[in-house]
Design a protein around this nucleic acid. Structure first.
Lengths: 239, 239
DNA sequence: CGGTTAGTTGAGCTGGATCAAGCGTAGTGG
DNA sequence: CCACTACGCTTGATCCAGCTCAACTAACCG
């Protein structure tokens, strides 16, 4: 099930057979996580990182009156907190949105990798930089796109990312988020998310029902979102 | 003038004398940049990175109707686009806000460093992860803080970051941004920024006049911003 | 079949946007 | 030295996208 992770890496650079072996050797154990569990809290000291093998997770931050902002979504194949290897503690929480299977990667293995595998280290460095690019794209959404644009952009982004790991079937994919979750991604209220989803549905652009997104008109969706996949860095290049 | 950069690194980990030599050897040439110049455009292929020695720069993204979002501010000592080493081209533009002096760092030197200096590589990886943490904090601002909170948070963040490199004098520091620039950082309009600055001034919390920020009441400012410096990772730890 | 959670809709409100005008000051050129 | 210009700051009036509050409905589940 680490296959999805390898698909992600290979979309960005060549991974040799030996490197693949090194990647496979990272995971010390796998674990099941129930839905709606916060597995990592901000500030907590960490000595392992989490590779998401199956399910959906998110990073989020809270303000003291309970307002929550989800800063990134994670799908199977994502290294959810690879950055904790250098940061040692996180500035955000990590929560399972659905039941998940994770691979636990001890930091000492990453450290050994960083001493012995400079190329693979650059690839992993790259993946954290791609995470940051997604954060920037979300900053643009939150700061400058209107409500419909934010939702449309999220649907575009997730379509491309899921297709990459084989989790989209044509113009349809699973997105097991509630409207509350979508609101926390987009900086809106659940009520307004609901209305904007209705608009998009009535315009026959996208439809989201019981955790399934169905894109009726990709071009219109891209136009509404002003979506460009550049920030996902999907052209493999030697690093 | 690379001293400020070393101050930043040493706030996060121990940098040995040899490593310091390696850092100093990164800069191939220095260059002066006039104010209001976009030095790097999204998509452009890069083979050098930019170390900001003096002045102010920002990363920004545009939507097609001209709405602009600044995604991060940079001060002297920051490695403005270290991430271009692994990304090869950026998803955002980089602009000088003031006249700047920069150090040009060829990617081949970073590549050699990544082959020969695993510890320093981890430190630089860390600094790009701290950049990402700042992006997350801005996502929280843009998504969930109100206009006053966003401005207050920006003033807190810049105070801490400037103090670190010796650019704050007590509760006063230079912030050479126009109200238009502040609006592009905070996802607001210049008019609304102006009004919220007036509020903060009349409440005797902060004052910003002709590019100088003067904090009258740090505790109130922190409370309005719900500011915590955790996302800046200022406790040095071995990586 | 009753309880719980998520989605839907309506009515009214408000934070921040928009539009427009005026002001202060630094530079520029005559 | 003053007129002129340009740019950034300030303020007022009005508008609207998205929020709040509240009630209702649909789906799921033990």
């Amino acid at each position: 099930m680490i296959e999805k992770h390898l698909l992600k890496l290979r979309a960005r650079d060549i991974v040799s057979a030996e490197e693949e072996t090194a990647v496979r050797a990272l995971v010390a154990e796998t674990r099941a996580i129930p839905a709606k569990t916060t597995i990592i809290r901000a500030g907590q000291r960490l000595d392992t990182s989490t590779l998401l093998l199956d399910g959906w997770m998110c990073r989020y931050k809270d303000l003291c009156q309970g307002q929550r902002q989800i800063t990134e979504l994670h799908v199977a194949g994502d290294f959810v907190d690879l950055h904790s290897f250098t940061l040692k503690r996180l500035d955000h929480n990590i929560m399972a949105l659905t039941p998940c299977r994770i691979g636990v990667v001890p930091h000492e293995r990453l450290r050994a990798l960083s001493e012995e595998q400079p190329h693979l280290t650059r690839i992993y460095w790259l993946t954290t930089n791609i995470d940051a690019a997604a954060h920037r794209e979300w900053e643009l959404s939150l700061g400058r796109r209107d409500a419909t644009g934010r939702l449309a952009h999220l649907f575009c982004e997730m379509h491309v990312r899921l297709e990459l790991v084989g989790l989209a079937r044509g113009m349809r994919y699973m997105l097991p988020l509630t409207q509350q979750d979508l609101a926390e991604c987009t900086g809106l209220t659940p009520v307004h998310v609901n209305r904007m989803l209705r608009d998009l549905r009535e315009q026959r652009v996208v439809e989201m029902r019981r955790g399934v997104v169905h894109i009726h008109d990709w071009d219109r969706l891209v136009a509404i979102a002003e979506f460009s996949p550049d920030f996902l860095y999907l052209d493999p290049e030697p690093r």
